[in-house]
Amino acid sequence: MPSSSRVAIIGAGNVGATAAYALMLRGLFAEIVIIDRDADRAAAEATDIADANAVARPARIWAGDYSDVKDADVLVLTAGAATHGDETRTSIAAKSAAIVRGCVQEAMGAGFDGVLVVSSNPVDAMVQVAQATSGLPPERVIGTGTLLDSNRFRKRVADQLSVAPGAVEALVLGEHGDSEVVAYSTVRIGGVALDAFLGEQAFNRLEIAHDVMRAGYTINHGKGYTSFGVASAIVRICEAIHRDERVVLPVATRLSGQFGIDDLYLSLPCLIGAAGVLRVLIPDLSADERAALLASADALRETLADLE
């Protein structure tokens, strides 16, 4: 594993550039390198972020090439096909897979040996493609998965209950997409289960779950892409790795028998540290949630089968 404080980002689009900017603001890495097939775009984004860095913690930020990934602790892959309008994430899987395979082959050929974080859509399928292409141990190839969805879930529950999002524990599991599982059985407010906290207060579970699942489409309709939310998820995972935090985050990891699911990347709560996923936790789900998680796995298998 490399010891340098460097993060490399492949993809200078809206997500990659926003992630690079957010990483600069967090001051996590001494070096941030942005790589893109559009060298002019990468150079422009790197220069813009470097200019902003004048009022932040010192860091070296530049547009590089694949030779720069060899010394990176963390490699973030955001490159892939983009969705438009009501186009689903899975509908672009074949295009994204070709891009992801090419990027990962280049990175491994350059000698990368750190932790790979994938956010390319559809992320669960793409992180599976990335791991298979890279040959890295599964624990060192992580998808952003449902971390963003879980953050959205916590925020909407908090808004309904008039509490701070930090007071809410809540998980979205399975696929980052239309089959995701909004797991109300995992909701806790200050350690108190949702039903006990609510008492007689009205609470529309179906509306919130639908809003969480459709949030990406809603944002896409309004501005043409999503960036800030997923970039924040990328930064949170990078921070957990870089600081060896051993924090639990719902991310996409390759399952090995959890809930009867094997050799498939889906999101469950994972213990994250410097070596990637240290342990996969098995939450106590309701029967309906377990069934929905298995259905989510089936949906992802269909996507992967189409790629093959």
Rank of each mutant, 00 (worst) to 15 (best):
F228R: 11
A274F: 00
A30F: 02
L294G: 01
S91R: 11
I99W: 06
A19E: 07
S296T: 09
L194W: 11
V251I: 04
R236H: 02
D51L: 15
E289N: 03
A81N: 05
D306F: 05
G222T: 02
L148T: 05
A79V: 13
V33P: 10
G11C: 04
S267N: 08
P165Q: 10
W62I: 02
A19G: 13
H176T: 01
F203Q: 07
F153H: 11
E239G: 12
R205P: 03
A19T: 13
I35E: 03
V69Y: 08
S185T: 05
D211Q: 13
T83S: 03
A292E: 08
G102Y: 04
G80E: 13
A46C: 08
G216M: 02
S296L: 13
D306R: 10
L198P: 02
A297E: 14
E175Q: 15
I219V: 12
D73K: 15
Q160G: 05
E139R: 14
L161D: 14
G174Q: 03
A231R: 04
I219A: 08
V277G: 02
E180R: 05
S134R: 10
S4T: 11
E175R: 12
M108F: 06
M213W: 00
L206S: 13
L271P: 03
C270V: 01
G191P: 05
V212C: 06
V248L: 01
G273K: 00
C238L: 00
D149H: 06
G229C: 04
A63D: 14
R154E: 03
D113Q: 09
E245W: 01
A46E: 01
V115C: 10
F228W: 06
R41G: 14
S267K: 06
L264W: 06
Q160A: 14
L136Y: 00
A167V: 00
T90N: 09
L161Y: 14
A231S: 14
A305M: 08
N151W: 07
E207L: 13
S134N: 06
A297G: 15
